[in-house]
Amino acid sequence: DEWTVEDKVLFEQAFSFHGKSFHRIQQMLPDKTIASLVKYYYSWKKTR
């Protein structure tokens, strides 16, 4: 599952609005599965 720079920026924006409500985040990133969002979240969180 490839994440473009745009995907990553959108994820951060969606996360700032919705927190860990992955269903709502998915509405902003409809091409990503919930599982993909959760997996990305945990790898992204480690870099914070």
Score class of each variant (00 low, 15 high):
30 P>Y: 04
23 H>F: 04
1 D>A: 07
43 S>C: 14
12 E>D: 13
35 A>D: 10
37 L>S: 02
9 V>D: 11
27 Q>I: 00
23 H>Y: 04
46 K>H: 15
8 K>H: 06
14 A>C: 04
28 M>T: 09
15 F>A: 05
43 S>E: 13
41 Y>T: 03
34 I>A: 01
16 S>D: 14
22 F>K: 07
27 Q>C: 03
15 F>I: 14
11 F>M: 04
23 H>G: 05
9 V>E: 11
46 K>L: 05
16 S>E: 15
5 V>Y: 15
22 F>A: 04
39 K>L: 03
12 E>M: 02
17 F>K: 14
31 D>L: 11
3 W>M: 06
37 L>T: 08
34 I>D: 09
43 S>A: 13
16 S>C: 06
23 H>W: 07
44 W>R: 08
15 F>W: 05
22 F>L: 04
43 S>R: 14
4 T>L: 04
29 L>M: 13
31 D>S: 15
19 G>L: 05
8 K>G: 05
18 H>F: 06
5 V>H: 05
6 E>N: 10
6 E>A: 10
47 T>I: 06
26 Q>N: 09
27 Q>G: 05
26 Q>Y: 09
14 A>H: 12
5 V>S: 11
7 D>A: 02
17 F>E: 15
46 K>Y: 10
40 Y>M: 07
4 T>H: 03
37 L>M: 04
35 A>S: 13
42 Y>Q: 13
19 G>C: 11
5 V>I: 11
7 D>S: 06
30 P>K: 12
40 Y>V: 02
46 K>A: 13
16 S>I: 07
12 E>V: 02
46 K>G: 12
35 A>C: 09
41 Y>M: 14
33 T>S: 10
23 H>V: 11
24 R>T: 11
17 F>W: 06
47 T>P: 13
9 V>N: 14
7 D>G: 07
27 Q>Y: 03
16 S>K: 12
32 K>W: 00
2 E>F: 13
27 Q>A: 14
34 I>K: 05
8 K>L: 02
13 Q>V: 15
33 T>E: 05
16 S>R: 14
35 A>M: 12
6 E>I: 07
15 F>P: 01
13 Q>C: 00
6 E>R: 11
2 E>Y: 12
36 S>V: 03
36 S>T: 10
48 R>L: 15
9 V>W: 12
32 K>E: 01
9 V>G: 12
20 K>D: 07
20 K>P: 04
35 A>E: 15
11 F>T: 05
10 L>F: 05
35 A>R: 14
46 K>M: 05
21 S>V: 10
17 F>D: 15
6 E>P: 06
22 F>Y: 09
2 E>H: 11
22 F>N: 11
8 K>R: 09
29 L>R: 03
45 K>W: 06
2 E>Q: 08
38 V>N: 12
26 Q>W: 02
40 Y>I: 10
23 H>A: 12
48 R>G: 14
25 I>T: 04
25 I>Y: 08
40 Y>A: 03
46 K>W: 04
16 S>A: 13
4 T>E: 05
40 Y>L: 00
2 E>G: 14
29 L>G: 02
21 S>R: 15
15 F>Y: 02
27 Q>L: 10
43 S>I: 11
21 S>W: 13
40 Y>R: 00
36 S>I: 08
44 W>H: 09
6 E>W: 02
25 I>D: 08
16 S>L: 11
7 D>R: 01
23 H>D: 08
30 P>G: 00
7 D>Q: 12
27 Q>V: 15
8 K>W: 00
3 W>V: 05
45 K>C: 06
39 K>N: 11
34 I>F: 14
9 V>P: 01
26 Q>F: 06
43 S>Q: 12
44 W>G: 05
22 F>E: 03
47 T>C: 06
13 Q>A: 10
23 H>E: 13
4 T>D: 08
17 F>C: 01
47 T>D: 08
36 S>L: 00
19 G>V: 02
2 E>V: 01
43 S>N: 12
42 Y>R: 15
17 F>G: 02
21 S>D: 15
7 D>F: 00
16 S>Y: 10
36 S>P: 01
37 L>E: 06
22 F>P: 01
29 L>T: 00
14 A>I: 05
8 K>M: 14
22 F>Q: 00
30 P>R: 00
3 W>G: 00
45 K>S: 13
42 Y>F: 07
9 V>H: 11
43 S>G: 12
9 V>Q: 10
10 L>R: 12
35 A>N: 12
3 W>P: 00
46 K>P: 02
33 T>D: 10
21 S>N: 15
39 K>S: 12
16 S>Q: 13
16 S>H: 15
3 W>Q: 08
28 M>Q: 09
37 L>V: 06
15 F>K: 07
38 V>F: 05
42 Y>I: 13
39 K>A: 08
41 Y>L: 06
7 D>Y: 04
26 Q>K: 15
44 W>F: 15
20 K>C: 10
18 H>W: 01
29 L>A: 01
31 D>M: 01
20 K>H: 14
34 I>M: 11
17 F>N: 12
29 L>F: 11
46 K>C: 00
38 V>E: 13
14 A>D: 05
10 L>K: 15
42 Y>P: 02
21 S>G: 00
48 R>P: 06
3 W>C: 02
29 L>W: 00
35 A>G: 14
5 V>T: 09
45 K>N: 14
30 P>W: 15
40 Y>S: 01
37 L>Q: 07
29 L>D: 02
13 Q>R: 09
35 A>K: 13
6 E>G: 09
48 R>E: 14
29 L>E: 00
37 L>A: 05
5 V>G: 05
18 H>R: 00
36 S>R: 08
41 Y>N: 09
5 V>R: 12
34 I>T: 05
39 K>M: 03
45 K>M: 14
36 S>Q: 14
19 G>D: 08
8 K>S: 02
19 G>R: 08
39 K>T: 09
45 K>L: 06
12 E>H: 06
